[in-house]
Nucleic acid binder design. Structure first.
Lengths: 184, 184
DNA sequence: AGAAGTTGTTATCGACTGATAACCAAAGTA
DNA sequence: TACTTTGGTTATCAGTCGATAACAACTTCT
């Protein structure tokens, strides 16, 4: 079987998607470029050729993550520009879960100056987006992001989301704000 | 100069402290056992001998982190058993910062089943401690932990805390709840 | 003093990993 | 058809890392 040839741009997009999946589970240091390559069905050296370094691949995956969260917020605001609407939209992202854990792995890797810089810029953009879309106050947005970070941490801990472990009493309490949502 | 000999137990405690420092900056996969060893002034193989594996060393560091946060809460409740008191105490932990970033690296490493199990147990214990000490409702505790996870994420991003980068407009908003606290 | 247990070290290894180099093949293009 | 560009691969390497083995030094007990 001859592999379908893609343009470099198409292949990069595909690799970024694979990178989000891989990095969201193993983190920056804990994921190999070979894992990403296999996930996309190409050889490991080709991944390096397209992105130069592992770090740039991670940064691209991070960028993609922030972009998708940003787009989710914009889509939600399009229907109803309130914090509640955006909150539900973010909660819906749990069904993918990758984006949240990827975001957290970005935080975790922020001890590296280059990565930290990128992550802060991306997170700042999300903040500005939320405030611009909803017109909320700084205090309201702070509460909003606090909720979001709790969800993000719980998802990373596998307390909620697709790969969640059975609920304990404490995790049921913390996860129960939007009881309507289901994962299957 | 002859190295001071410690008992195995003393050396383990010292190594756990070094492990918290090292892991809190590099995470599980991103930190080498040799880094921990150097931080404590012993050889790398000896670290492995005392903890058997890198994973057990990480679990010990995680346990220590949760224990110290738990103790911080108990000390705060001793003075005034309210969520506000505990919140200020947790905020004070920013001055060390290690504990928060270590906690986040625990979340991040939870894709590993053994680590995830340990982290969930520890986090659950913190939840039970907070509820028992303050007698707060599930909703109140949820808001409390949301605040805490926001702080934890911001600290990992180096937006607040000891090694923080200069504040941006957005990060000033998110960091400004307890304006009295100073880091120097 | 000497045996025994405890606290460490140095030497070493096998496995892994990111990155480089060189080459191959498919597809336009003149 | 021959040439050039573009999309890929295989081969390989230098460095790193966790872990094991063997040994050395200090303490304690008899």
């Amino acid at each position: 079987m001859s592999r379908t040839r893609l343009t470099a741009e198409e292949r990069q997009e595909q690799l970024v998607a694979a990178a989000v999946t891989a990095f969201s589970s193993g983190g920056y240091a804990g994921t190999t470029t070979d894992q990403v390559a296999r996930l996309a069905g190409v050889s490991q050296p080709y991944v390096i050729r397209l992105f130069r370094t592992k770090q740039e691949l991670f940064l691209a995956a991070m960028q993609h993550t922030v972009d998708r969260i940003d787009a989710t917020f914009r889509a939600a605001a399009d229907q109803e520009p309130t914090l509640e609407s955006l909150g539900h939209a973010y909660y819906e992202l749990l069904s993918e879960q990758e984006l949240m854990t990827m975001l957290l792995h970005g935080f975790a890797a922020s001890a590296d100056p280059a990565i930290g810089e990128h992550v802060r810029t991306g997170f700042g953009r999300l903040y500005e987006t939320v405030r611009a879309l909803t017109g909320c106050t700084a205090e309201e947005s702070r509460a909003f992001f606090a909720e979001g970070m709790l969800l993000t941490c719980l998802a990373s801990m596998r307390v909620i989301g697709r790969e969640a472990v059975p609920l304990q009493p404490w995790s049921a309490d913390l996860a129960s704000t939007y009881p309507a949502a289901k994962f299957d």
